[in-house]
């Protein structure tokens, strides 16, 4: 059970934070289809930071968390900068946001693979030394518990063998959700996604607010990308995040562009992803019987499930879903 919860969390966290990234962009009125590409850039720059810091030899394993934080910061910065390409096209040049986002999705893997190939002569960039579990994972002994201490299901999930990114992302999620709903800035941002003409007439600079929305979105997607690379890919980057950026978009739509619903949706999708990835090692009630493996269903069916469920769920909920009214519509001051 602890294992199941932990695995689910590992897949939930990137979905959660990237879905919030989507919310920030779309609530400000810009469709951010580039989430996948931004995640790829974030993962690459994060891993590259770890690689370079290790290569320079300044940090040792004891300061692993510091290295991780620096990498996370670099990933966020890269995501924000990369998303400026989208903002510039979508806001200043009034470009087709779907095509602009697609362009970034094509650009990100091409750029990362181009540089990774030049750096390492192969298609994947890993850590310079060690593996992510030994460098970055926090175990219960690090927190002062005895090696044999029983922590229960929840304690075992949250206090043993976890990555600090999990908590950083959860805190970010809560804080940013509050900012979006309880502050003047958040209200203005949402107004620009609903009725930018009215917002403009009240003295809000729609362009600035949309830039803010997309940039925050980019930073969050960058963080999500590195969190994904760190926890599921053993801190390596290969120009691919397995469709998580797109899944996060589906999570956001399923969550109706609201933070609380989106969090629940992310958990549901994380669970599906977890089943797909680890079905053969899941021991639900701890009696040594791996039920899902015993049934003998082809693993490809499990891998397909999250996407099938997404489609089915969307088919049943889409009539009720309410997207921000002005999303995807370039703001033109002369239409006020």
């Amino acid at each position: 059970m602890t294992f199941l919860l932990q695995q689910t969390l590992i897949y939930t966290i990137p979905l959660l934070i990237v879905a919030l990234a989507g919310i920030f962009a779309e609530r400000s009125g810009v469709i951010n289809l580039a989430l996948e590409g931004i995640m790829i850039m974030g993962a690459f720059v994060g891993v590259l930071t770890v690689y370079l810091l290790q290569e320079a030899g300044i940090f040792t394993k004891d300061s692993g968390q510091l290295v991780m934080l620096l990498a996370l910061g670099a990933a966020a910065l890269m995501g924000a900068v990369f998303s400026l390409l989208l903002s510039f096209a979508a806001i200043n040049l009034r470009a087709d946001q779907t095509i602009g986002g697609t362009a970034l999705n094509l650009l990100a893997p091409a750029l990362t693979l181009f540089f990774i190939n030049i750096l390492t002569s192969q298609n994947v960039l890993g850590m310079f030394t060690g593996d992510s579990a030994s460098w970055f994972m926090i175990k219960k002994t690090d927190l002062g518990f005895e090696r044999g201490a029983e922590l229960g299901v929840l304690g075992g999930t949250f206090l043993d063998k976890f990555y600090l990114t999990t908590y950083i992302c959860i805190v970010l999620y809560v804080v940013l959700s509050i900012i979006l709903y309880k502050t003047k800035f958040g209200l203005r941002l949402r107004a620009c996604g609903e009725n930018p003409q009215a917002a403009d007439s009240l003295g809000i600079n729609v362009y600035v607010m949309r830039y803010a929305g997309v940039t925050i979105s980019g930073a969050l997607a960058g963080i999500g990308g590195f969190a994904f690379a760190l926890t599921t890919a053993n801190c390596s980057a290969n120009g691919d995040v397995a469709g998580f950026g797109f899944l996060a978009l589906a999570v956001m739509i399923f969550g109706n562009w609201k933070p609380l619903n989106t969090a629940l949706a992310a958990f549901l999708f994380g669970f599906c992803k977890c089943i797909a990835a680890a079905y053969s090692t899941i021991d639900i009630n701890g009696d040594g019987v791996y039920l899902l493996r015993e049934i003998g269903i082809n693993p490809n069916i499990y891998r397909m499930l999250p996407f099938v469920i997404t489609l089915v769920v969307l088919a049943f909920t889409s009539k009720k879903s309410r997207a921000p009214k002005a999303e995807g519509v370039p703001y033109d001051k002369s239409t006020r």
Partner: peptide, 24 residues
């Protein structure tokens, strides 16, 4: 050369990016 084939993907992506604001 010492470069790799991904440069063409970069060029293609740049072209798509530009065609998103072909109107401009």
């Amino acid at each position: 050369t010492a470069f790799n084939e991904y440069i063409t993907d970069i060029i293609i992506a740049a072209i798509v990016y530009l065609s998103s604001f072909s109107l401009i």
